[in-house]
Design a binder for these strands. Structure first.
Ligand code: NAD
Ligand code: NAD
Lengths: 211, 211
DNA sequence: ATAACATTGTGAATTTTTTAACAAAATGCT
DNA sequence: AGCATTTTGTTAAAAAATTCACAATGTTAT
């Protein structure tokens, strides 16, 4: 699967591939070797056609009446989503959310590794959280370069968001995942993703209200 | 804006309205009274047409060359998204993530209120987190009914997810926001939203890899 | 007063995403 | 072997979401 072809995979498919892989790994752990499109669909609350279409788009082919080989499919998704080398990640702000994230990723996916965390609180600096060292924020640029960190996750109080974003951008970060409720702007060469659970919750509230 | 009309608002617009409101409230706090579509667009990293289209869909009209009245627009979004009464929410599992969420919502939006939290750890039960009482999980059904809770946020270890989901459904919950990496199934009358940051992070990683 | 400009609102066009429909082929049943 | 069933892969159709294009019209500058 070359880069030209990968460029044509829709954004939505990329998201679903990540979700499929998680579901597949869970199934794999139960000893299953093959899975049908409708089984994946059930887990993800989507249609079987959608699953088959996504799998078709990445050029994988299942076996008729047997379904998809889980190991092969997982590997192929890995070829598309994962980098060749481990991708190093930093968490900025090791409060409740930062710790939840760090713990969640520790010793998990091989290709995504939280390699450092940063804070300003002297009680936290020098400690390890889920095995990850916590450094003072003014070491950010140095450590990012040293450890070849390419993604930063922002979990500081929102008053600090802009400053942290600037520090990350100045350190040459490639991608930012911003979990604070303060939207940021980044240069074109930095990929930005923002998430605020207020939106998820308000969406649930809206559809609850609408029955 | 009656319910019939609201049903025709696309899902994506609902999400963006929530985001617009957050951005508008921030702008409002700085003393601004009006805002242009391209200003909202800039904050949200989308196009101005998209903003105008969304605003058109909810039936609001700006002033030519002056933009949208922030207060009026915020109020109208409130009419669409918010329930009339306060909507009570429970957080199940008051670990790192549960506490981050509880803190984030405490004393924030008037219409969404975290009214109770639940855990099994005896050290946590009876305590308050960001002003919210923590109860033992076997009080779930009782408290949900007593406090008229309609949405549950699941933040327990993923091994417990299914059990908690079942307890919530049996207690008559209307909506579930599942933050554990274990996908769940719910009956048709319960609205479900799931979020796993692995997907966000893998998406960032993918686009970083693609330049 | 006039020209130049900025901004909204929206019909039409385009693009993206999802769904429907069904042929092809493997499996199992009788 | 023949038939019914299941499941994939894909083409075509439909639906949803986004963007284009521009008329309408208020504002500012001269
Ligand atoms: N996106 C979401 O859904 C969501 C949910 C909950 C919370 N949040 C947000 O996440 C952020 C963190 O929430 P939390 O509950 O973990 O808060 P917290 O107060 O527990 O943690 C913030 C941490 O950042 C550190 N910090 C402060 N200034 C810093 C700086 N300049 N550089 C480095 N570190 C700094 C603090 O010492 C603290 O450890 C907040 O902005 C909150 O609003 C987002
Ligand atoms: N969606 C995401 O992006 C994301 C990010 C980080 C963590 N997570 C997930 O969120 C969950 C919580 O993470 P965390 O770091 O807060 O974990 P944690 O261990 O700090 O918290 C879990 C809490 O649940 C409680 N608990 C255990 N069993 C329970 C039960 N049966 N009923 C009620 N409470 C129970 C524990 O006592 C603990 O307080 C995990 O499943 C984790 O994988 C999701």
């Amino acid at each position: 699967m070359d880069k030209r072809k990968m460029r044509h995979i829709p954004h939505k498919t990329i998201e679903r591939l990540s979700q499929y892989r998680r579901a597949l790994l869970i199934c794999q752990a139960t000893g299953k070797t093959h899975i049908f499109s409708h089984e994946i669909a059930k887990i993800q609350h989507i249609t079987a056609v959608q699953v088959r279409r996504d799998i078709m788009l990445i050029g994988y082919t299942g076996t008729l009446r047997k379904g998809y080989n889980i190991t092969e499919l997982v590997n192929l998704i890995g070829i598309i989503l994962d980098t060749d080398e481990v991708l190093n990640i930093a968490v900025i702000g090791i409060g409740n959310l930062g710790r939840a994230i760090t713990k969640y990723f520790s010793g998990k996916r091989t290709k995504l590794k939280i390699s450092a965390s940063f804070d300003t609180n002297p009680d936290k600096i020098g400690k390890k959280y889920a095995g990850v060292d916590c450094f003072h924020i003014n070491q950010l640029e140095k450590i990012i370069k040293e450890k070849n960190i390419s993604i930063g996750i922002i979990t500081v109080p929102s008053s600090e968001t802009i400053e942290i974003k600037n520090k990350l951008v100045n350190s040459g970060i490639k991608g930012i995942l911003n979990y604070t409720p303060k939207p940021v702007d980044v240069p074109d060469n930095v990929y930005l993703e923002e998430y605020d659970m207020t939106t998820s919750l308000e969406k649930v509230a809206f559809f609850v209200k609408m029955h």
